[in-house]
């Protein structure tokens, strides 16, 4: 997998929610960041990067409507 872990740092008053680019789960703290070509995708973990590459891209293609936040 091409990604790496980063930690989401939010202020105590920030109530916004970050979602995984593929599955849509909330990402509470640790983000799996994948930088490819000119895009950065934020996943909840390596499993979603794998699913993105093995299922989503072949099925829908990069140009289709996707789950990016």
């Amino acid at each position: 997998m091409a990604g790496h872990w980063e930690q989401r740092n939010t202020d105590w008053w920030d109530t916004t929610v970050l979602n995984c680019s593929l599955c849509g789960q909330m990402i509470p703290r640790d983000i799996w960041v994948v930088e490819a070509a000119s895009e950065t995708r934020l996943f909840c973990g390596p499993d979603c990067e794998r699913l993105y590459l093995e299922y989503w891209l072949p099925k829908y293609g990069a140009s289709q409507r996707d789950a990016s936040p």
Binding site: V17, L22, C23, G24, L51, W56, D66, A67
Partner: peptide
């Protein structure tokens, strides 16, 4: 079991 539920759709409501 893997679930794909894009935010902003009727299966994953956004704030």
């Amino acid at each position: 079991i893997k679930i794909i539920a894009p935010p902003g759709t009727c299966v994953n409501v956004r704030y």
